[in-house]
Design a protein around this nucleic acid. Sequence first.
DNA 1: TTGAAAGCGTTACCAT
DNA 2: ATGGTAACGCTTTCAA
Lengths: 359, 359
Amino acid sequence: MKVSKPGRRGSGRITAEDVARRLGVSQSTISRAFSPSASISENMKKRVASAALELGYQPNVIARSLITRRTDIVAIVIGNLVDPFYTTLLRILTERLQASGKQTLLFSSSQAGGLDAILPTLLQYQVDGIVITSAAVSSDMVRICAKRETPVVLLNRYVPGIEISAVSCDNVEGGRQMARYLVELGHERLAFVSGQPDASTSLDRQQGFISELAQYGISSCVIEQAGEYSYEAGYEAALRLMRSGNVPDGVFFASDIMAIGGMDAFRAKGLSIPHDISVVGFNDVPLAAWPTYSLTTVRHPWEEMADSVVEMLGLDAGATPKKATTQLIPGALIQRSSAGPRSGQAPRPFARSARHGPQ
Amino acid sequence: MKVSKPGRRGSGRITAEDVARRLGVSQSTISRAFSPSASISENMKKRVASAALELGYQPNVIARSLITRRTDIVAIVIGNLVDPFYTTLLRILTERLQASGKQTLLFSSSQAGGLDAILPTLLQYQVDGIVITSAAVSSDMVRICAKRETPVVLLNRYVPGIEISAVSCDNVEGGRQMARYLVELGHERLAFVSGQPDASTSLDRQQGFISELAQYGISSCVIEQAGEYSYEAGYEAALRLMRSGNVPDGVFFASDIMAIGGMDAFRAKGLSIPHDISVVGFNDVPLAAWPTYSLTTVRHPWEEMADSVVEMLGLDAGATPKKATTQLIPGALIQRSSAGPRSGQAPRPFARSARHGPQ
DNA sequence: TTGAAAGCGTTACCAT
DNA sequence: ATGGTAACGCTTTCAA
């Protein structure tokens, strides 16, 4: 006869052992009752379920992960929780992960040390995957993660020389769309306000914009460096643009939040939008749709991006350790009223470039 | 002589055992090298450190938590990741937790089922504490958490009849401050726009506002229900306020995001702020400081609130299982330009109620 | 279908 | 100061 183990320890923790004792069965049986694929009689399953409910038992996923090697936790590294773009990204991604039964362990990389300081602690938590939406990624990090077989996906950015998966909006094409749109509205004196000078997102949007302008025979475009993706930076950049003397008639800001700062600056100086100047952004954050701004922008394919991330992390059943690939998903031009035809021209001469109408 | 265990399993996981073998010492020694309070020679500690670095070893906190019963993970339940108030709260709290060596497991309760659906999975992760910033909290939940000895803190709300800790801004006093401020600017025809009708935050601000108005002999105040804390709801509420015929000369919105929606609505209808109408909000989200809005509001004591939460969770060394208490922290009236003296009056007759100047 | 036992990677206690 | 060993709560063989 089995000698029953000592009773409950001081803690309020209820274990499978407790349920087993209650039912007079083995602890393994309790485990099986919570494992969908295990073979257990329907009757026993029911008995366990009711006993568990009664005792308030819930399997300890932490203990489980030790043996299954899956925590169902995904780490998300976010740089700037002030920027609505990132909070939107976080929201969409967390909801998507939650829907797949994964939980989000949130890391803010704005802390001192950046990603380098975060990565070690992050890995200690044995996360099933890492999503990085910001911060510099070194090849050292990639090597460390690869060695531990922890999948990493860069979201909204990519690092060329590195073996790492990435999913991002097609920023080059987005820049092109904006160029086409503004040119077809009749604008010729254009400006681009860049974000962080080394961010691939900003660079790509710029490159797409400039190269498409060239297609239309517009070879000059003022490039104003805002320095960072923020309202204040956009505001200041707009002021500098105005001080420079020749105010453009169309400005493409590398992100919505900068564009909105820019609009406020232009208006503060008495310009009317879009009459005196057309402003467009990128991202389509909720703010952009507000009537005060009604910002024409490129909508990020939020849902598709989130889906891609989940797929590339290989979190679903068949964990295919995908080779590192970069996936670009096209965005959609959202026409609102912050950009209009050049003053004195007929409104909306072409609508060809608007692949999607206003929402 | 000890028989060495079989070598590494397929996985890329490096364990303390691996480091021990490498150094020809026991696994316990490796563990001690990573435990600050353990007794280990300085020399050995160094040898372990370098071997660990070489092999890429990091202690598995998941395994550790099994025995220490501390995961260093705090669950944060956020209802509305669109509202800048909540994203700000999340940012501040996550940074504060990270600074204390705790990690944030993020749960969005806007998902179907709300908190009831989330709590079970949340508890499976053996979190050290739970911070709830939204959603209804039932006494059942409180009982379950209490049984498991998992501390719970309500942030920015409280539930009267329940034995649960809460930390919140002093909403009643905030409402009073706003009443004083608007009255002293000369306004008499006032309105309050409420958020969710059952939210303690909204109710308290309303109560403080109304009761303080009464102190000044103003017994009537229009109450407009916006229904939820959102830009759109604020916008619509403002429109209804205007349609009602007697437009107030001062409106207190229960939250900044509603106030901003309201400002846009008033302006869209041709009103000038603060000339025709004064608007004030609550929270002091980053948006409120933008020049377009320059919203007078009550600043949430973000940092103090975060500090209080950490303290009430008892996460630091001496885990005092505090009795459930509700802590109210006063906010600060931030004077900006969305509210001004009643048209035709001398500007700023009193400044008494502005406890802090504009930032 | 069920039970017993061997881990998973760590900490903590007991020896030495 | 260090090594051995028993937990921690679970999943997963292997037997029955």
